[in-house]
């Protein structure tokens, strides 16, 4: 029962914050809404029993990435953006029915799909050892290669971000500005 209440709380807060991310016009509020969403999603993870993922969500997402966004906002003078409308309103109105249809369709598919999906057994040793330990052992055995790949991707992403974002010497004249 406790879980239900926690889940409903986190879920409703997640959706509410997400709505804020989508609809608020001031970019500072949007960042704050995103931060709230990420924290609430971390709560969902804890409810589901995935403590490690939840912790990482808080650490990486809610702290590192959110700070990253804030940093970029300081680099880009967002005051200019305030002069313009923050949304495409016509497209939004036109897209809304499509979004509803998408919701209907996918939820229908999920509900039908869940009723025929197999039900697994909770393994005893997960409870004995605890979530973090088991995740770690699987991560470094079964998914070791994928883990290394991801680390490589992170490295490449870092180099790419540095190269893309660094200040270049003016080698060519920009025709559009």
């Amino acid at each position: 029962m406790m879980q239900w209440i926690a889940f409903l709380f986190f879920a409703s807060m997640t959706l509410l914050s997400a709505l804020g991310v989508v609809f608020l016009s001031n970019i500072i509020y949007v960042i704050l809404s995103l931060l709230s969403t990420l924290v609430m999603v971390a709560g969902i993870f804890f409810v589901a029993g995935a403590e490690l993922v939840g912790a990482l969500q808080l650490l990486i997402y809610a702290v590192a990435i959110a700070v990253f966004y804030v940093l970029v906002l300081t680099a880009v003078p967002w005051e200019k953006a305030l002069k313009k409308d923050s949304h495409y309103r016509i497209e939004g109105v036109l897209t809304f029915p499509i979004l509803l249809a998408f919701y209907l369709e996918i939820i229908l598919v999920f509900l039908l799909g869940v009723s025929v999906s197999p039900k697994g057994q909770i393994r005893e040793f997960i409870q004995n050892l605890g979530n973090t330990q088991v995740v770690g052992s699987i991560l470094f055995s079964k998914y070791f290669f994928a883990f290394e790949l991801v680390s490589l991707v992170l490295l490449v992403g870092m180099i790419g971000a540095v190269i893309v974002g660094r200040k270049e010497d003016k080698t060519y004249e920009d025709s559009t500005s």
Binding site: T95, I98, L99, F102, E105, I106
Partner: peptide, 9 residues
Amino acid sequence: LVGFSLLVL
């Protein structure tokens, strides 16, 4: 989005 919805459908 439209294409993905149609594909799933």
